[in-house]
Computed example of a mutant assay.
Amino acid sequence: MALQLASVKLWADNKNTAHEAYDGPVLRVAIMGLGGYGTRVAGAMQYCTKAKLVGAISGTPKKLTDWQDSFGIPAKNCYNYQTYHQIKNNPDIDAVYITTPNGLHHDMALAVAKAGKHVICEKPMALNAVQGQEMVDACKAAGVKLLVGYRMHFEPHTLEVIRMRKAGELGKILFFRGLCGFKIGDPKQWRLNKELAGGGSLMDIGIYAINGARYMTGEEPIWVTAQETKTDPVKFKEGVDETIQFQFGFPSGATASCLSTYNQNNLDKFFLNGEKGWAEMQPSTGYGPIKGRTHKGELNQPVTTHQTVQMDEFSDILLNGKQPVVPVDGNEAVKDLKIIDAIYAAVKTGKKVELSL
């Protein structure tokens, strides 16, 4: 936890994250799933102005006591996985951020919605599009909102490329390339467990290329083709993909070529090409500083702590009705899940799969 917080503080102390005076409503959040990413979000939230960490939900008692000490969370706002439905009776919590393994998102989101709290869920939102739509429907029926942790939708360098594309500075978009991956370690971790992860690299790092292809081109894919490569069937068991290459076609005629892998480092790269110009980002989605350049020169937008900005933006969306440049709601996530379903179908059949989003 100390390492996570030190990393977050390093970015939060950057001069570009200086606070501005704020006296509006504050979103009060409980985090469910106190692992590595939950801890990163918690640390980043210490620097939010519009959102506050007020609760914690975990199946590990020691984590709950540690978080009470580290983040000043009152014991009355701490729950385990058997008692968290009781948040219904806790007026101090507005929303729950689910950062548990993918396979747990669906049931937890339904329970949080039933308790009358807004749902914030990490991506991918569910294991498939059917589950995702059920989450959207449950939140709508409960009268609560559903947001997904698309932190890159608020990242300044990313938003500048989107602005340039919308302004026509790149001309007609022709091609996108997204390379996402890393060499995964511990073979016993949940990310290599089909039941908990729902797949392999595609369900973890590949989501960035999928979503990135959509917000970079500004279009929805209408077909997908895909191929899987597996060099270690012991580590990457049946249903857990090691490497998948996938391609999209868009209504304008633009195409995308992407790679998702658990067997290569030195990736995390986006490239967008148009008739008048281009944009390249590397790193394009990592936690540290995003770097990029275009045909006009280097991108020099502010460096931010992604999770701090995301949670403040989520507060504005949930409490003030703000509309983000790129959607971050459940419907946006269902589209990604439909694409993931199509990629897996294309891998299995070897055929082009038509899409209608």
Rank of each mutant, 00 (worst) to 15 (best):
A2G: 01
V8I: 10
L10I: 06
D13S: 14
H19W: 02
E20H: 10
I31W: 06
I31K: 01
G33I: 11
A42E: 07
G43Q: 04
Q46E: 07
C48I: 04
K52D: 02
V54M: 00
K62C: 02
T65E: 06
F71Y: 13
N77C: 05
Y81N: 08
Y81L: 11
Q82M: 10
I87K: 10
I93F: 10
I93V: 12
V96W: 05
T99P: 07
T100D: 08
H105R: 09
L110F: 02
A111Y: 02
V112T: 07
A113P: 06
E122D: 05
L127V: 11
N128P: 07
Q131V: 07
Q133T: 06
M135L: 03
D137E: 08
A142M: 09
G143V: 06
G143D: 01
G143F: 13
K145W: 12
L147K: 13
F154R: 13
T158E: 05
T158Q: 03
M164N: 14
A167F: 08
I173A: 05
I173F: 08
F176P: 09
R177M: 05
L179M: 13
G181C: 15
F182K: 14
I184P: 14
K188E: 09
R191E: 00
S201H: 11
D204V: 14
G206V: 08
Y208G: 05
Y208I: 06
N211K: 09
R214C: 04
G218Q: 00
I222S: 00
V224N: 00
T231E: 14
P233A: 09
F236E: 14
E238S: 15
D241W: 12
S252P: 07
S252F: 00
G253P: 02
A254I: 00
S257D: 09
C258V: 03
T261R: 11
D268W: 12
F270N: 14
G274A: 03
G277P: 10
E280N: 15
M281H: 13
H295D: 02
H295P: 13
N300Q: 15
T305Q: 12
H306R: 11
Q307C: 04
Q307M: 10
D312V: 10
D316H: 14
I317N: 02
L318F: 08
Q323A: 05
P324E: 00
V328L: 01
D329F: 03
E332I: 03
K335R: 04
K335V: 10
D336C: 12
I339F: 04
A342L: 06
K348H: 13
G350H: 09
G350F: 13
V353Y: 01
